[in-house]
Design a binder for these strands. Sequence first.
RNA 1: GGGCGGUUAGCUCAGCUGGUUAGAGCACACGCCUGAUAAGCGUGAGGUCCCGGGUUCGAGUCCCGGAUCGCCCA
Length: 1093
Amino acid sequence: MVEEKKLFEEVSETNFPRLEEAVLAFWREQQIFAKSDQKPAPKGEFVFYEGPPTANGKPAMHHVLARSFKDIFPRYKTMQGYHVTRKGGWDTHGLPVEIAVEKKLGVLGRKTLNREQIAEFTQQCREWVFANIEDWNYFTERMGMWVDLENAYVTYHNSYIESVWNLLKRMWDKGMVVQNYKVVPLSPRISSTLSQNEIADGYREVDDPSVYVRFPLKRETTPEAVRERLMAQGVRLEDLDNLAILVWTTTPWTLPSNTMAAVNPEMDYAVVRSPSVGHLIFAAEAVERLRELHKEELEVVAHLKGKDLEWWEYTPPFPEVCVELGVVKEQGEKRPDGRPVLHFVALADFVSAEDGSGVAHEAPVYGAEDLELSRQYGTPLLFGTNEYGLMQVTDERGKFFKDADKGLIRIMKERGVMYHAGQIRHRYPFHDRTGDPILYFAKPSWYIKTSNFRQALYDNNEKINWFPEHIKHGRFGNWLKDNVDWAISRERYWGTPLPFWVSEDGSEKICVGSVRELSELAGRDLSDLDLHRPYVDEITFVKNGKTFRRVPEVLDVWFDSGAMPYAQWHLLLDGQGQPLPGTEENYRLWQRHFPADYICEAIDQTRGWFYSLHAISTLLYDQPCFKNVICLGHLVDEKGHKMSKSKGNVVEPLPMFDKYGADAVRWYLFTGSEPGEQKRFSERLVQEAQRGFLGTLWNVYSFFVLYANLDRPNLQNRPAVVDRPEMDRWLVARQQQLVERVTARLDAYDARGAGKELEQFVEELSNWYVRRNRRRFWKNDDPTDRESAYATLWEALVTVVQLAAPFTPFVAEALWQNLVRKVQPEAPESVHLSDWPNADPALVDETLLTQMGAVVKVVGLARSARAISGVKTRMPLPRVLVTAPTEAELAGLRHFADEIADELNVKAVEVLGLGEALLSYRVLPNLPVLGKKYGKRVPAIRDALAELDSQMVARTLKSGHSLSLEIEAERLVLEPGEVLLEALSPEGYAAQEQEGYMAALEVRIDEQLLLEGLSRDLIRLVQQARKEMGLNVSDRIHLTYTAEGRYAESLVQFGQRLQEETLALSLEQTKPVGYITELSDEEGAVKFGLRKA
RNA sequence: GGGCGGUUAGCUCAGCUGGUUAGAGCACACGCCUGAUAAGCGUGAGGUCCCGGGUUCGAGUCCCGGAUCGCCCA
């Protein structure tokens, strides 16, 4: 006999990693990703932007997280009929690369690099950038992320740089680019700008001076507000001798550079009489502290508000400095509007009185906040040191800044302005390579005037959907509200060179917007020029008789990545916003892909990529750059600690893929917690994810294939849904509901919610549908019923496979190939080329869903009751009483009474309706309804309801009447909807109740039931033996036996059933032969012999 | 120092606009089932919902204060 070809590939044990490798090979060979690009897209383009990772590090678990979320929605949208361009990208410039190369080359002070060294340095950077590109390519493919890496954009490519220049030029033309000072951390001896990361580890606990200095106030400039307030308190200004404002600082070396004294406008300031120095003004909150510190009796004579003090002029401790530096012509110089140029009291919210005097000394050259304040007040800068940290003024001239403190304190003591000099222990950053303290120093820097667009940035943010939502007005919104100008220049080598050329005398500046423009200026073709340093630095040109040279800085890498919507297509526009000649196609591509429908990165990108994208598109196009954004939380280890190499708690992705499969990892990342939350990650959790969803799905699948291969159902021509049994129609309805819900969730970018729906469905599919219908698949002589069962289960599986495809692309593909392609050769070649299922609302039979819901609920309660009663399921029981809270559900229980009886192994199901004699109830107020209506009287109503006869209440409500109550001598009428009844367990039954559902088993076992129960024990005994013999499920046997006691009786009555269940062709009471199995207990004894037929 | 978020069972997490006995999965214990079988299912135990105060008939949920962890920014 020729064996018929199997309908489906047999399903072996689960080995997801091997399965995934096979799927990868299939995708590769059949070019499925490329084909998905060609899939018809009636819905148009869904625009996705790949936020470029850096390829110099190794891919880690958090990259799996981001890439999973980047992958799922494009896959979903593709199935839905959108086209999704999935262009990859690499971020290649910037500090991490430079630092790595610096280490390698042993270069420390970049100031000293000559042309050759720069060439060597940038060359090394270029090579280092893709140090791990092979790992990235492999990893990306292996995890099932579809992205076009062959045509990825690369931020260091000339074409990319040219587009970035072009963007800068357009901003330049609109006057958005300016040069201004910026306070940066310097390592002073080498005058090298450091990044925050470089100083983050350099903090040390040190002792620094803590000095309180008197700034004598100029009486003639006393603000009107001060005069008035003093008068109101009965204090005469004239009586205040030696009046000074008391300023606190821990950096005496910055005092020569002082330009303002800042007070908090909302804080209280005290006018204090000091026996030693006369009158002082400082924060009221600090009086007690100063009293103890300086050990003298301070008397508060008046109170002032910080804002009263604005513009009050004072004499600084080193008044000669400003003239010396040529910043003003004379001390006390005024502006045209009469305001002082320098040395006055300013208002600043950041001033606090927690330390010091509540009056801050402002030296804008040495502090970012100070510099910002100086901009607000329009004061000039006083450079007390140069950028190597050497003092340029006072008698301490030439000293290293920290070494100048002592001498300056001495001078101030001599001048009689030092009120108190002490010490403070605090943390201060040091540069760990030179050992020098960090110098914060204002350097000229290039800015984009984003602060002019604060409102537009904020308004455009309103148009973006943020997931999670709180980022929108929280982290991101606040950041936009407080927006400061974007400092875009860096004193580095490996980056997009700033395309600014400046004339020798500094009077003229040109921004270059394309290579062609530069060629024209230089008078030669520069098409082949590497736009990086040092080569671009060598391009000079003469215009208007002046020689122009490029500024030395390179561009902030965040601008690079924020430019990707334009630069990935090499967009080049002229001043009118039209494409430069020959770039029309680039323009078309850009237009089709702007703005993005969806982007996704981790939460640290709010100030990074999310911001740079948003800022550039707002400034140039006044619109948001992306419509939907998922902001992922960070991955931490099992204990909630950050994963880091030094801690050794890093979970590598590839071993996880090899052990559990990429799908298991993906599923966990999608469904394990909210995407925006921090996630704890561990191997154990991946294992759980694999077992929970994938394992259950696999079980159902293998069950289906096992029997379908035996029965060969016709799946091409399936029975109409209306002709199928109710159980099948239920699953069909449930399946439509699933499609609806998963689609809605994914449309809302809720991968987790969608995943939970899938998980729930698969659970019901396995533990209800398959469990209840097993026999229809293996011992079904009714072909119509059998075909219906196969069709229904097949459809459910195929639907799940399609819905799961964006989540777990490998398993979905494998099942699709076997379940669909084997029976429908004309079906799409890959599940990812198939169309997303549509829900058919006509098939959502709400009644059926409600009814089955009640059945499942009641069966659950009955199982619980049986477990408590201690009577095994094998033992039939005479009766179960069930009830449910609504009429619709009660109808369902009646309707499916046979299912319930079978599932619970009981002889009869009795459905008890409202008000039936066997039932008693708990009478409860419907709180959400009653609470709103009666408020404080709720407790009294609750008590009154408990007093009532529940049977009476049940009958009243059943008849639709309202309930009348007497409460605190008042008559209240409760409508039926305002009172809830919960069935209570009847006496004498093993019962469970919950929220109005109840199941009560009658535990009464008579002789007949006992014999039946024993027969099931015997069946089990034989089945066990069959398994031990290694028989196939369809093998026939011959049975011989001896028996005594009740087992003998049971076999007489139920022998026929035993034969049927165990596929025994004969059952003879004789000496057992063959494989022997036996049993003996208080009910009797039995011994079977099994022989294969 | 500021901003944002978290803190619920041993673990990982749900808990919508306040509402009755705070849930799920895993792990654990016990049991069930046996033609999905080196699978499957159920039951149970396990909680000061971080702490303190407030609003309310009623707070895990809202408000205020604090602790703590994390991220970002200074």
